[in-house]
Simulated assay, not measured.
Amino acid sequence: MFHFKELDALVDIVKEGLRFDGVVVSTPDFNPGFLHTMQYLQQLLTLKMFIIVEETGTQGIPVQIPSNHIYFGRYERHGFQDELFSRLRCWFDEGLSKDTPCSRRSKGIALNLHSKSLKVGETVIELTCKEFELLDLLLECQGQYIPTEQILHHLWDSYTSPEIVRQYVYKLRHKIETTAGRSDVILFRRGIGYSVSL
């Protein structure tokens, strides 16, 4: 895995014959010149790419996003790094082998590890990467209540407030209830932690 701030440098390296599986590209400005260079690069070599963009400057030119893995945002924005790292982990996980189970299941729900979505009954709910990671952890340990501090340790860094866990649980519960009509998927016991219904 390589990280490049200059896409032209990547083009030069590819021309020299170096081959690799995936590239993370960081650019401060998603503009027509950037698009042209990327299109040229894709003609040279099929690459798995993740693009991090600070701003869009297209000067009125319609933009066709060249990748499903693109994240717009400023590095200094609150929560940017957490969401970025979550998306990158999801991106890496797409290399799962065919032998890897495609879902985690509990009573009436299934978390798809490939599409990063939740199926409740017959309803499919799209998840953000961090929502997916939270549910994945709860389902991996289903039957157990996981303390807030343990969730925080697994999914965030030690400097993040435990309040972030409560916020994500609230968002998930709201999303599941409004989309699928279930309010009992994520359980909470004060002083013990969170779990999923069995």
Rank of each mutant, 00 (worst) to 15 (best):
K15P: 11
A9W: 04
G33N: 12
R189G: 02
P147S: 07
D12Q: 13
I125D: 11
R166F: 08
G193H: 01
G79T: 09
F80P: 03
S115N: 10
H36E: 11
D136Q: 14
I61F: 07
Y75M: 12
S26P: 02
T160E: 12
F132Q: 07
K171V: 14
E122I: 08
V120S: 12
M49V: 14
H154T: 14
E140Q: 09
S161W: 00
V185F: 04
D8N: 07
L134R: 03
E177M: 11
G22P: 02
L45Q: 06
P62M: 02
T178L: 08
G60W: 02
Q42P: 01
D21N: 08
C141P: 02
Y40E: 10
S106Q: 14
H154M: 08
I192F: 06
Q167A: 11
F92Y: 07
W156A: 13
I176M: 10
Q59V: 15
I125C: 06
C102W: 09
L137D: 02
L155R: 10
E140D: 08
L139R: 15
R182I: 15
I186C: 07
L187E: 07
V23A: 04
S117Q: 08
T100S: 08
V165R: 00
H174I: 11
C90R: 10
P66G: 13
K119G: 05
I109C: 06
H153A: 15
